[in-house]
């Protein structure tokens, strides 16, 4: 009967169960980012859809030469790059919130987020690579 062998188990129903605030502004910045990127995407995506699908001839005039001609201009390169990055980060952050909401177990939440982040990085990498290294003179092998 040693007092040390018994661990003191306190019943403390009223003590806070939440971890202390992390003093990080991450959620604030992601909230602001969602608003700003959303506004930018309205312009970028609607402009993109208008040019690609409605403006003279619409979708029927799209071919390799059309894309090559557009990407010869830094303006359209920047447009597409901005659209790619904003859409990925905006959508990715939205999905992150949805995963936080609906994943029941910590392990599910972790793996879903990993899948999300890996796919985001992959798509951002491939997309950026294509925009910057696009070569209109592909040799007709």
């Amino acid at each position: 009967m040693t007092a040390q062998s018994e661990t003191l188990a306190l019943d403390k129903p009223r003590s806070p169960r939440r971890p202390a605030a992390r003093r990080s502004n991450f959620e604030l910045y992601s909230w602001v980012f969602m608003r700003i990127s959303g506004l930018a995407l309205v312009v970028l995506v609607l402009g993109h859809l208008f040019i690609m699908n409605i403006l003279d001839g619409g979708v029927h005039r799209l071919n390799f030469a059309f894309v090559a001609g557009r990407w010869a201009s830094p303006f359209w390169q920047f447009w597409d790059l901005a659209m790619l990055w904003l859409a990925q980060l905006h959508g990715g952050n939205g999905l992150r919130t949805i995963i936080d909401d609906y994943a029941r177990r910590d392990s599910t939440r972790f793996w879903l987020k990993m899948l999300l982040y890996v796919s985001m990085v992959l798509i951002l990498f491939v997309g950026t690579l294509v925009i910057f290294t696009f070569d209109p003179d592909i040799p007709a092998s």
């Binding site: 939440r18 990080s24 502004n25 991450f26």
Partner: peptide, 12 residues
């Protein structure tokens, strides 16, 4: 405000 600035705070 610090408490509500966290992941489970007002930004949800």
């Amino acid at each position: 405000l610090d408490i509500l600035n966290d992941a489970e705070g007002v930004w949800r």
